[in-house]
Amino acid sequence: MTEVIKQKSTLSYFNTFFLFFGVSVIIELFYMGILGVIQGTTLTILELSLSFDNAVINALILANMPPIWRKRFLTWGMLIAVFGVRLVFPILIVFATTDLSLLESFTLAINNPAEYEKIITASHHIVMAFGGIFLLMIFLSFLFNENKDVHWIAIVEKYASRWSSVGDLKILIAILTISIIGFYTPSEILVADEIKKIDKGEIILPMVYGILLFLSIEFLRGILEDDGSKHESNSMEIEREKIENVVNSKLAKGGFASFVYLELIDMSFSFDGVLGAFAVSQNIIIIMLGLGAGAFAVRNLTILMVDRGTVSEYKYLEHGAMWSVGLLAISMIIQIFMHLPHGLIIALAIIPIAIAFIHSVRENKLDKYKI
C-alpha cells in the first residue's frame, strides 16, 4: 500500500483542484468575461499562497488523526471551507453592514448578483475598514515576532523582531492607525462615482470590530493550544509542540476534537483570504469560486504532504504571502476613501508572493551546492 502511494505522481494529487478550477474558469468567463477569470485566478493564487503554512499544519495534525476523521476532514471539511467560510462569511459581512436580513442577503447574492454587488459597493467603506485593519493585524503580528529566526526583507524584519520585545507594537500601531483615520475622516466620500455622506462611526467601529475579531481568534486558538507549560524555543518549535499536545491528548485521539481544532485553524487562516478578496473583487460568485479553488489546492497539498511525509522547503513563501497581506491591508484602508485600479491591487497581491517563491527556489539550489 505504501509503495502505491509513493508511485503516485505529484500532479495526480491535484486532480480535484484542476477539476474545480477548470469549472470555475468556465463559470467566471461566462459570468464576467476575462476580468472575472483574472480576478478569480488571482484569488486562487492568493488563497493558496496565504494558506501554504496552513497546509503544513494541516498535514501535521492530519497524520495523527484516525483514518475515518481524516476522510471526514477532506469531505465535510471541504464543504465547510468552500461553501461555509468562502460563501456564507461574505454574506454575513453584508448582513452586518446593511438592513437586509440574512435570508434576503443570501437570496440576493444568488439570484441578483448585480444588485448584490451594488449593495456591497454602498457599504464598501465599512467592509474596507473592517477588512483592512484585520489584515493589518495579521501582517503586524507576523512582522513583530521576536521568535522569528528567518528573515526575508532583513532590513525591515530584523529590526521589527528586535523592537517586538519592547511591547505589543501591533496593537499600538493599529490603534494609532484608527486614531489618525478617525481624525482625518471626511464627512463625505466617493462611492461608485457618487458622493455619499457618512458618519465617522461607520469607519471607526468596523475597524475596532476587526481588531476584536483578530484578538478573539488568537485567544480561542491560545486556549486550545495551551498545555500549561512554558516555552523558550523558536516559534516553529513552539507551534509544533502546541499542535502535538492537542493531537496527542485523550480527547483528540477520539478524532472529533482534532477535527474541530483543525477546522478552527483552517477558518482562522481563511479570514485573511476572504477579507482580502474584497480588495480584488466585490462579486460574491467570483470570491467563492476563486477562493474555493484555492481551498481545493490547499487540501490536495495537505494530502500530498501526509502521504509523502514531507513539508515544503520554500522558506520565504510565507513571508511573501504576509507582505502581500500587508500591501492588501494598506490598499483596503486607502479604498475607504478612493478607488484603486484592479491591476494595481492584483499586482500588490501577486508580486511579493512570486518574488518570495523565486528567492526560495534560488536559496534551495544554493544550499544543495553547499552540501
Rank of each mutant, 00 (worst) to 15 (best):
Q7S: 11
L19Y: 06
F20E: 01
G22W: 02
G33T: 15
V37P: 08
S49A: 15
N64I: 01
M78I: 01
I80A: 07
V88G: 05
P90L: 11
I91E: 06
T97Y: 03
L103G: 04
A114K: 12
Y116R: 05
I120N: 07
V127D: 01
I133L: 05
S141P: 06
H151N: 07
W163P: 00
I171A: 10
I175D: 14
G182C: 08
F183T: 13
K197P: 13
G201F: 14
P206G: 10
V208W: 11
F214W: 14
L215T: 13
G222S: 10
E232L: 14
N234K: 08
N234G: 12
E239Q: 07
E241W: 00
L262R: 05
I265E: 04
S268W: 09
S268I: 10
L275N: 12
S281N: 14
I286D: 02
M288P: 05
A295V: 08
F296N: 02
F296E: 02
F296P: 01
V298D: 03
T302V: 01
L304I: 01
M305A: 13
G309I: 00
T310F: 01
E318I: 08
H319P: 02
G320C: 06
W323T: 00
G326T: 00
I334Y: 14
H342D: 15
I351G: 02
N364Q: 09
K370A: 09
